[in-house]
Write a protein that binds this DNA or RNA. Structure first.
Lengths: 137, 137
DNA sequence: CTACAACTTCAAGTTAACTTTAAGTCAAGC
DNA sequence: GCTTGACTTAAAGTTAACTTGAAGTTGTAG
């Protein structure tokens, strides 16, 4: 497959594919003239990368995890650690969500006068809720 | 208070405080010579900013929400929208976590042969799980 | 044969939220 | 009166994950 085929099938743009190759995340099976040729397993690999990204791994981490073997064996302990990390994130976000919902419904004249909102502010201020972002767009 | 006092009390570094001021997120009450002087309500303001960040607002969004009034009144509908957004994020992360936990425990010889792991990969690949990041460090 | 779309490389640009650096100001202590 | 340390500004640097741009190459359709 040519790069545009891979792009179309995977939903990953050609420039990103080149970027991923440069980073060692994927590799082409060879060249036809100057053009990259990819094997079909690159699609699986791209799904693994997407999975890793969704789980919160950086590209560098993913490169380390997947290695350069065709059939990567992923460390189960690592998965568990990441699952637990996600668990913590989920708990914090849940506290956040509940606090926001309350604040939206609260009858206090100002949010600043709502004790629950204050608690939430305090939580956020102390950094108890940290390391969370939702991407732009 | 001088900037270092605010930094110490809030846990926000002096350079960040200047940066926030430049962005219009906070403001000093005046100057003593060349040095900024902050009023006590800047601390509350910083907590609100931290709360907003934790909820996934960008600094620009927060600036828009808080305005430049001393006692900001925050749009309840906006809070609710953000709460719902968080709800979606939580659901995705939960699916993710469960998938990872399963994959870690799964007895299939390779993750690639576990149907549940494949489903997870597919989810991530289609972008059903998207717009999520956990910050570095 | 020639045009053209799709590829190629390499370098530089983008965004967010800061941090770092260089050069300067200023009040206080010795 | 000089040093010190905490402040000041403005500009440049940082990081991640890409995207964009410029300039060149190639297979194919007409």
């Amino acid at each position: 497959m040519e790069i545009s085929q891979v792009a179309k099938k995977s939903g990953v743009s050609a420039s990103t594919l080149r970027f991923y190759e440069e980073k060692g995340l994927i590799s082409s099976i060879g060249r036809q003239g100057i053009r990259r040729v990819f094997g079909p397993n690159v699609l699986e690999r791209l799904e693994l990368i997407a999975l890793g990204r969704a789980a919160g791994f950086s590209l560098d981490e993913i490169a380390g995890i997947l290695g350069n073997e065709a059939k990567p064996e992923i460390d189960r302990e690592l998965l568990l650690r990441k699952a637990n990390e996600l668990d913590g994130t989920i708990k914090k976000l849940t506290a956040m969500r509940d606090g926001l919902k309350h604040a939206a419904a609260c009858t206090a004249p100002s949010h600043l006068e709502c004790p629950r909102f204050r608690r939430l502010m305090n939580l956020a201020g102390t950094g108890a809720i940290k390391g969370l972002t939702t991407n732009k767009k």
